[in-house]
Each structure stands twice: as structure tokens, then as C-alpha cells.
Design a protein around this nucleic acid. Sequence first.
DNA 1: TATGAATGAGTTTTCATTCAT
DNA 2: AATGAATGAAAACTCATTCAT
Lengths: 217, 217, 217, 217
Amino acid sequence: MPKPTFFRLPDERRDRLVEEAILEFAERTYAEASLSQIAQRSRIPKGSFYQYFEDKLDLYRWLLTDEVPRRKRAFVGDVGRDRDFWTRLEDTIERGMAFLVEHPRLARLSAAAADPTAIIEVRGLHKAICEAGIEELRSLLEQGVASGAFEAPDLDVATRLVATIIGPGLTDVVLRELGAELHEVLASDSLRKRLGPKRRRVLAHQAVLFIRHGLGG
Amino acid sequence: MPKPTFFRLPDERRDRLVEEAILEFAERTYAEASLSQIAQRSRIPKGSFYQYFEDKLDLYRWLLTDEVPRRKRAFVGDVGRDRDFWTRLEDTIERGMAFLVEHPRLARLSAAAADPTAIIEVRGLHKAICEAGIEELRSLLEQGVASGAFEAPDLDVATRLVATIIGPGLTDVVLRELGAELHEVLASDSLRKRLGPKRRRVLAHQAVLFIRHGLGG
Amino acid sequence: MPKPTFFRLPDERRDRLVEEAILEFAERTYAEASLSQIAQRSRIPKGSFYQYFEDKLDLYRWLLTDEVPRRKRAFVGDVGRDRDFWTRLEDTIERGMAFLVEHPRLARLSAAAADPTAIIEVRGLHKAICEAGIEELRSLLEQGVASGAFEAPDLDVATRLVATIIGPGLTDVVLRELGAELHEVLASDSLRKRLGPKRRRVLAHQAVLFIRHGLGG
Amino acid sequence: MPKPTFFRLPDERRDRLVEEAILEFAERTYAEASLSQIAQRSRIPKGSFYQYFEDKLDLYRWLLTDEVPRRKRAFVGDVGRDRDFWTRLEDTIERGMAFLVEHPRLARLSAAAADPTAIIEVRGLHKAICEAGIEELRSLLEQGVASGAFEAPDLDVATRLVATIIGPGLTDVVLRELGAELHEVLASDSLRKRLGPKRRRVLAHQAVLFIRHGLGG
DNA sequence: TATGAATGAGTTTTCATTCAT
DNA sequence: AATGAATGAAAACTCATTCAT
């Protein structure tokens, strides 16, 4: 957790730090990411950094568990509970793609949290975030089962498979669609122009069809 | 490519080096991985290393493009062309899980090659490997379509979705099954006892059902 | 260019670094010179060095293009424009010898800049410095011609010949006079006692006579 | 001195080694020059090298004190004793320029031997070679005095000044004439086409005029 | 509280020389 | 005698963190 001083910081200064941190951690692994870079690019003295955060891990943890999820929730909004399960899933997927397109760096950071890592300090962190994501999806799927949308002999397995589809799977599809490599994507502030809402809707629909009926459906 | 010296090395010495290298690169990112570590653990002087490889990248490239694929092919064997498409897919998946269970480090290294990375030298390498994997799967799916096993409006999208299922998706499932974290898995030489052929067959079947019929099938 | 930090350093510390750097680069080629040595001898941690300079080349460049010329100018002073050309040349030469005697290391470093080198990064640097020196001398000679002191069918050639006389040529003469080898000379802080102003004046006069009338004059 | 094995070597093999050694030492300082490079480029195993020479220094010493002077003598030939002193000087200079143009690498190596250096092992070597060159020139000048061509109040000083003129001075002039940097020159086998005998004769004559009458002559 | 500076442990890589076959 | 391989010492440079003001 950031130290209290961090929250007392002038907005502009704090934002600069956060933006550069997000960029750095989106581009590189935790171990690869360099505080020196972040400090330099955000023009925050390295010494000051340690007034705001305990250490590198503290910043990373806060981004992954607080800041990025907060922004993601703010963007994605509520998908709505009352509608049909499949529609809700499609919405979820579409919102996910929109997030990726509008906030590539946040999306990337979010995805990175799902990667296993050998760095001992980050391991628990990643694992927890990953499991939380799985839990969330699982509860959505449970509602699907409850509503009779589908049956699943093993919901655990199903959840994990669906999770990779709407996670890495769709990211992959979107990147293909954009014809871009990740590092170019991270450099952009937004990619709206290259993958607009209509096309996203189409892709989301295709994905749901796949999840619902598979290839042989 | 390794220098000729490398292949003339006494087996025991070469193996030590290779094993430690595989372990290091399986555990850590290319940038994180440390030659010093590899050298130290394999008890090969750092100076000697450069008799065998041009540099760190040379070793990494060789592992990713030659050694690991070679071992993987040797293990996975031929899935057989004459059988039914769905059976072949199930076999592919089962072999994949078996490989992960029997050679966790190789499997991990193999998977790492699909990760995008900011390190410029490795980017092209990863991308090429990734695309090669996609191409292979796509040609399998094309046979599926040809044999009338299924229809796919957009084979590109389908391929990528299936790829993540049988890649990260199943890895995830297997890890869950093993109840283990990646780093524990990487420490083991084999996990056969914890996920035997029978259970693998069941999981593979479930996965194929999912790919074939989806959730709502 | 040094980083600002460098100039904010306590004088004593900065001087230690600069002196040791000058010594190292005076004794050895750019490629041979060792930052580790400089750091060790000036008792400045290697890590700290990089707070002051971008890298080895940055330090070398600064010494060659800024620090040494600055000190040289400060020492040599103004030779005076109003006097007779030959007198001015003699003064220039005498000051050069004085500089060599009083600041052997600076003089050596200065001379090193005229050496061609295979190290690509330094090549341009050396060349530029060398050409600047030639230009300066040429403009002096031009004044000589203008004042009717002498005529020169090919001023380019003449300039280069005179340059080597008052450069390496006189260094050679002085070393001979001192009966010392370069490395002993570099070890001394001053050699005034061994080659005083009177003798320098005599030598300078001889040199000018040679330049003016040659051997057969 | 090379070991006897060296001289028993097949000509072709020995030549390859020598050529590459000359090239390497012409391009780089003794300390910078790399045996590995020489070995690699001449395709002589590093291990074998130590059958032929004691060590790096042994090779360098042999080149500087034996091989290069031998080749230089062979090229320069005898300048002739019976002619007029000034003519003989002009011939000497012209031959020197011819050597530089026809055997740039040998000439460069020869010149490098005159550079003082901090590398303790090479110091004596360089000094000796340098002094030998000076002695040779001095005896030529003595003949000049004897023949009444000129008088010199201090022959020591005169010798050294003339030495730098016909050494670094003319090298400088020639490089200027060629419009080339040293490293390009070293890459060529011969530069005859760029600086032919006629032009060399002109330059040599100019140089002699300068040495004889100076600027104000 | 802010911050510029200090630092030691770590990184990859090169090289002359020795050794074993 | 020939040689491929082994090796330790050294190089330049980076980084997270601490410290003094």
C-alpha cells in the first residue's frame, strides 16, 4: 500500500508517476521493469519515490490490486444482471475488448497479473489476482447454469477454459485484427479507430457462439 | 546456433549445462534469466560458456527453436492421420498434457515462447515460434473442415481460440488438477504420479467436448 | 558532457576523480584505460561514477574537448597579437614547452588527441580536435604571410609540417633534454627544475630558426 | 624471437599468420590488439600459436624489430651514398612516402613503434626502435654537415626536428593528399593509384625545400 | 517532507594463456 | 608438433535501495 504521503500529493504529480509506472510495468516484467526509468520519465526523484511507496513491490502490488482494477471497473461498468446469460457474456466480452482497445496498457497490466512468475515476491500476488478473476467468472457461469442456459459436468474445468478464451484468446484475436504487435499497441493511447464498436460486437458474438456451441455446434 | 565445441562436449557436462539452462529460462524471463546463475549451478566457468554459445541469446534461441521442439516431438510422437478428426484432436490434447506432466520445464519453456516481450532481440523469435504453432493448428483444423467434422465461418478466429484452449487453457486446468503452483511444478522432474493417463484422458475428452459443442451444446 | 551532479561534487572529491582520470588517459589509450582503475585510485565507487558521467566515452570526451583545453588556455595565456610574427611563433613554442614541463599529463592527453585510433567512437573526436589545432596554426601562419614574414607556395603542406615540429617534434626534444621516458614524466607533477625558462627560451629560439631558415639557411 | 617451429612452418601458413598479425597490430595498440582475432582470421588455432611464439609480446617484438624492418629495407633499397646530400634526403623522403603508399600497414606499424606507451613490457622495445631510427637519421645528417651542405649548432635538436618532419609530418601530408582516414588506408593493399611517383616527387621536393630553407628562406 | 547523491552487488562479455590429447 | 578446449581475471555498466541535508 502506498504511504499516506502519496495520496497527499498534488494530482498532477501523482498522475505522472502512476501513468509512467503503468507504462513501464505494462511493457516489462516485474523484474525487468526499472524504477529508475519510471522516476526519470515521470520526473519524480528516486528519493521521493520512497516517500510514497515502500519499495518497487509496493507500487506494483498497488497497481495490480487497486489502481488497475478500479480503472477497469470504472470503464467496464455494470453489465446488467437482468438480461439473458448469453447476452451478458457477450457484453462482458465486448467490454473486455473495448477496454483493451481504449486502455491498452491497463489491459496489458491486467493480463500480466495472470502470468505465473518465478519472482518469489510477486508469485502470491499474481496467484491471488488470477484466482479472483476465475472466481468472478465462475460465479457468472453459475448464474448461467442456474438460469438453465447450459449444463456443465465440471464447472471448474469449464470456467478455466472460458477464462482463457475471453482472456488471452480474445487478446490474441484482437491483436491479429489490429495487425499490430503488442509493443506498438502499448505505445498508443487508444486504438478505437482501428477496432470500432461494430466490429467488436461482431467478434464478441462470434466468441459467444464458439463458447456456446463450439466448432461442431 | 551453438558452436561445434558444444556438441563435442562430454555428455555429462553438456547435459548439466542444458538442464540448468532449461530450468533457468523456464523459471525466468529471457531478460531475468542470468547466465551467471546457469554457469554457477552447472559448475561451468562463465568463460567456458562462451566456447559453446555466442552469447545468452544464442543459447536461448537454440533452446527455443531446436532443443525443446526436438524433445517435444520425440515425446509427443505422431498423433496419427487416419483417424477421425475429433479423436486426433483429443490425442493431441492428451499428448500435450502428458508432456506438461512428464517434462514440466520443457513445457513451460515452450509456453513462454508464446509470450510477447519487450526485449527487442527476443521479440522476433517469440513471434515466429508463436505463428508457427498457430499455423500448425490451423492446418489441423483445415483438415477438420475438409473432413466435414465441422464448419467455421472464420477459421482465423477459431484457430486462435482453440489454440488458447489447448495451450494456456489446459495448462491452467492441469495446474489446478495438480493443486500446485508453477514453481513447484518446475522443481519436479515428473508429475506422472499426480496426474496419470486415465485422468488425462478424461480431461482431454472434456476439452474436446467443449471445443466441439461448447457449453450450450 | 558530465551530468550536473558532477559539478556539484565537493571539490576534493571531484578533483580526485579528474586527476586520476587525466592520469589514466594520459598513460593509456582510450581503449586501454580502465574505469575500474580510475574508480579505485580515486576511491570513488564505480557505481558513483555513473552519477557523474554517462559512460567512459563521456568522461574522455569532456577531458579532451573541455577540461584539458580550458586548463591549457589558462596556462598558456595570450601570446599577443601586436608583435612580430616570428616572435609570436617563438612565444607560442615556448609556452607549449612550458605547458609540457609544468603539466606533463595534460600535455600528453592533449597530444594523444592527435593520434589516430581504431576505436570507432573516438575516431571522430580525435579527428575533430586534430583538425581544430591545424586550423588554429594555419590562421597564425596566414597572418605571417600577410605580414610579409614569409611566402609559402603551399600553405597546407607548410602548416602540417610546422604543426609536427611544434607538436611531436618539440615534445621529443624536451623529453631528450629531460633525459626521461614518458612514463616517468607523467608521474611528475612538474618538471620545472629540470627544464627552466632560460633553456626553454633557447630551445624555442632554435626551433624558430629552424622553421624560418631550415638547416641550410 | 619466434620458436624454431615457426620457421619450419609451411610458407602459406606462416604468411597467413604474419599478414594477419601485421594487420591487427597496425590497426590497434599492442594492448588493444587481440590474439584471438589474429588466430581466427589467419585460421591458426590459438593453441598452435604458442608453439610458434612465446606469447603476444614475442610476436609483437619480432614484427617490430625483425620482420617489418626487413621488409622496409627490402622495399626502400639503398638510397645511394655518392650523391649530393639534399638529393639523398629527398630520395629518402620519397622512398618513405612510397613505402607508406605501397605498404600502408607496414608503415603504420613502423610508425607505431615510435609512440611512447604505458604498457610496461613494450616500453623498452619502442624506445629502442625509436632511438635506432634517430641514430640512423643523425648519421645521415652528420654526413650532410661533413659535406658542407649545412651547419647546425645543435645536431641533436636538428635531428629530432627533421625526424618528425619526415615521420609523422609527411604521413600527415600524405593522408591529407589521399583525403583518407588512417583506417581506410590500412584496409587497402596499395594506394599507388591515388598518390603516384610524380606527385610524391613534388611533395618530397617541397619537404626538402622546407627542411633546407624553412619558411623564410 | 523532499530530494540529490551514494553505493555494492549484480549483469554480460572478452582475453591471454594453459592444459590434455 | 598440433590443437581444441578450459578458465579466471578483468572489463563496462545498471539497479534498487539508503542516506544526509
